[in-house]
Simulated assay, not measured.
Amino acid sequence: MNKSMLLSPVKIGDVELKNRVVMSPMCMHSAGENGEITDWLTTHYTTRDLGQVGLIFIESLAIGKQAMIGPNDIGVWSDDHIVGLQD
């Protein structure tokens, strides 16, 4: 794939990406103690978007505190987690 294709838009189903650059998920273990999104995580993902990554896969999400694969994983077991995961 040449540079012009890498940086060109692509449509996957109904979603159009600004380019074909993809960030793989990483286990950053930087959420709060109860799985909440922290300022660090918000900055981490926002800067990747500003850096022109077309598609960002966020890290694993724990469906319960006992399901965390490591300390400070992002949680999705409480309505309290919704605000940090929006947008």
Rank of each mutant, 00 (worst) to 15 (best):
L17M: 14
A62P: 05
G51H: 05
T46E: 15
E16M: 08
M23S: 11
V76E: 00
G51E: 09
W77T: 00
V83F: 12
E59F: 01
V83W: 08
I82H: 08
G51V: 04
L50M: 12
D39M: 06
S8K: 03
V76A: 06
K18H: 11
N2S: 03
G54Y: 06
H29W: 11
G64L: 06
H44R: 05
T42K: 15
H81I: 03
M1F: 11
M28N: 09
D87P: 04
I63H: 07
Y45R: 05
G51R: 05
D80I: 05
T46D: 15
P9T: 00
H44Q: 08
V10A: 13
I63K: 08
P25F: 04
K3N: 11
A62V: 04
N19P: 05
I58W: 09
M26N: 04
E33P: 00
K3A: 13
T46I: 12
D79A: 12
H81P: 07
H29T: 13
G51F: 04
T38I: 07
V53L: 03
I56R: 01
V83I: 09
P71D: 15
G84E: 02
N19G: 08
M68S: 06
V53C: 06
T42E: 15
C27M: 15
D49N: 12
R20C: 07
M5Y: 13
G13R: 04
W40N: 02
V53F: 01
S8G: 05
R20E: 10
I37G: 05
G70E: 07
D39K: 11
I58N: 09
D14M: 09
P9I: 00
Y45P: 01
Q86D: 12
S8L: 03
G75A: 10
M26G: 05
H29C: 14
I63Q: 07
M28V: 14
I12Y: 11
Q86P: 09
G64P: 02
I12R: 09
M26D: 04
M5P: 02
D14E: 14
L55V: 02
Q86E: 15
P71Q: 14
D73C: 15
S30P: 04
M26A: 11
D39A: 12
F57E: 01
L17T: 08
E33Q: 10
V53K: 00
M1V: 08
N2V: 00
T42A: 15
N2Y: 03
V83A: 14
N2P: 02
M28C: 07
L61M: 10
A67T: 04
V10D: 04
G35I: 00
R20F: 08
R20T: 04
E16P: 02
L50D: 13
S4C: 04
A31E: 01
I82N: 10
G54W: 06
D87K: 14
S30V: 02
S60T: 09
G32I: 00
M23F: 07
V10W: 08
V83P: 11
I82L: 11
Q86Y: 13
Y45E: 03
G51I: 03
M68C: 10
V10P: 02
G70D: 10
K18Q: 15
L85T: 05
K11G: 07
P71T: 14
H81W: 06
E36A: 07
F57Y: 08
Q66M: 05
V53T: 10
L50H: 13
S60V: 09
N19H: 06
G32W: 01
L61H: 03
N72T: 13
V83G: 11
